[in-house]
């Protein structure tokens, strides 16, 4: 599903590379946790996958799409196949829960009828029934992140990238979000989760990739958090 072959990323000629010749292979339907200290290269890795950044060297293939041959005008189409969840939710503050989720379908040109059929199912999946007409500021942090996840998965992407989704949440809500991600993974979506939360990493018993100074230092099938 995701293939990185000796990928390096250097932002500046004179500084150290943010990612240094990393190779990675993620199978379909895997749940992968990426850990590392701040500045280790986690965010750069995710930015390469969403094509916000181009690698300096190396090859990236995601869902059968070779990024070397990907034209700029096709980047939006690629991004519609990858769901992204952010630490700060990035919801549209002036739009309701329903509208925020529908937005992901509107940009893809889906009809209003399709939207009316699809969005309620996703709202049910993330457990936000009854909150469709509320605005983000009327929701708790955990609920806002659920809306963000619903928006990310409403187009049924093959891959879901969750960049520190629990970073702004208390332990209870953090676990709710992680359980939701597991549920989405069970439905067949490959999940890439970056986190600093030791407890989540240790209790999930999933594949853990540790990045340090731009290199993959550990890749464990059922790993735990390493400092």
């Amino acid at each position: 599903m995701i293939l990185l072959d000796r990928v390096s990323k250097k932002y500046d000629k004179d500084t150290k590379p943010a990612l240094d010749r990393i190779s990675l292979h993620v199978e379909p339907n895997e749940f992968v946790i990426i850990v590392g200290t701040s500045g280790a290269g986690k965010s750069t890795l995710l930015k390469l996958l969403t094509r916000e950044e181009k690698p300096t060297t190396g090859k990236i293939v995601v869902g059968g799409i070779d990024y070397d041959t990907l034209k700029d005008k096709h980047i939006p189409l690629l991004r519609r196949k990858i769901g992204v969840v952010f630490q700060d939710f990035k919801l549209l503050p002036q739009r309701t829960v329903f509208e925020n989720i529908a937005f992901a379908l509107e940009i893809a040109g889906m009809s209003n009828r399709e939207i009316r059929n699809t969005v309620p199912k996703v709202i049910e999946l993330v457990g936000l029934q009854g909150k469709e007409k509320q605005f983000p500021h009327q929701l708790s942090g955990g609920e806002q992140q659920r809306v963000a996840i619903a928006r990310a998965v409403v187009r049924q992407p093959k891959i879901l990238i969750a960049d520190e989704p629990t970073g702004n949440l208390d332990p209870k809500h953090s676990w709710d979000i992680v359980r939701l991600l597991e549920k989405i993974n069970r439905y067949g979506t490959t999940v890439l989760l970056t986190t600093h939360n030791v407890e989540i990493v240790n209790r999930l018993k999933r594949r853990v990739i540790t990045i340090d100074h731009g290199k993959i230092t550990h890749d464990q099938a059922r790993g735990s958090y390493r400092q």
């Binding site: 939006p76 991004r79 992204v84 990035k90 992901a104 940009i107």
Partner: peptide, 16 residues
């Protein structure tokens, strides 16, 4: 800018 950033990342094209 945050909203625009999000729109780009969820796959909105230039025209949108």
């Amino acid at each position: 800018r945050d909203e625009i950033e999000m729109m780009k990342l969820i796959g909105a094209n230039k025209e949108f």
